[in-house]
Computed example of a mutant assay.
Amino acid sequence: MTDKTGASSGAGEPVRADHPHAQIATKLRALYVSVQEEAIPDRFLDLLEQLDAVERRHVPDGAK
């Protein structure tokens, strides 16, 4: 089924590239990829390592 713009409204049917939903989806994908490619800041990695160290000290050996 298509709407008045000619874009598909059904699941799995293609949407025209000039349709607003297609444009939003393209921009969201690009943003997602750029965030995936960003490096994790060193201070976050340090915090994660500190948390892991605390967990290792507080978790009994048999509970792992």
Rank of each mutant, 00 (worst) to 15 (best):
E38D: 06
D46H: 08
M1P: 08
A17R: 09
P14N: 02
R29Y: 12
D42M: 08
R29F: 12
H58S: 10
G12D: 04
E38I: 02
H58G: 13
R16Y: 08
G12P: 01
V59R: 12
D42K: 10
S34A: 08
P20C: 02
D52G: 05
D52Y: 04
D61Q: 14
D18I: 01
P14S: 03
P60G: 02
L45E: 08
G12R: 03
Q23I: 11
G6S: 01
T5H: 07
D3T: 01
Q50S: 10
H21I: 14
A25M: 05
A39G: 06
A25D: 06
H19R: 02
G62Q: 15
R43K: 15
V54F: 09
L51V: 10
V59E: 08
A22R: 00
H58Y: 11
L45Q: 07
T5S: 11
E13P: 06
P14D: 03
A39V: 05
Q50E: 10
P14C: 01
V35M: 11
A63H: 11
I40R: 07
K4V: 07
V15D: 03
L47Y: 09
D3C: 03
E49A: 08
Y32L: 14
E37C: 04
S9E: 15
D61E: 15
T26Q: 13
D42T: 08
G6P: 00
E37Y: 05
E38N: 03
R16W: 12
K27A: 14
V35R: 10
H19E: 04
Q23W: 05
A17Q: 09
P14T: 02
R43D: 14
E55Q: 13
R29L: 13
P41R: 00
R16C: 11
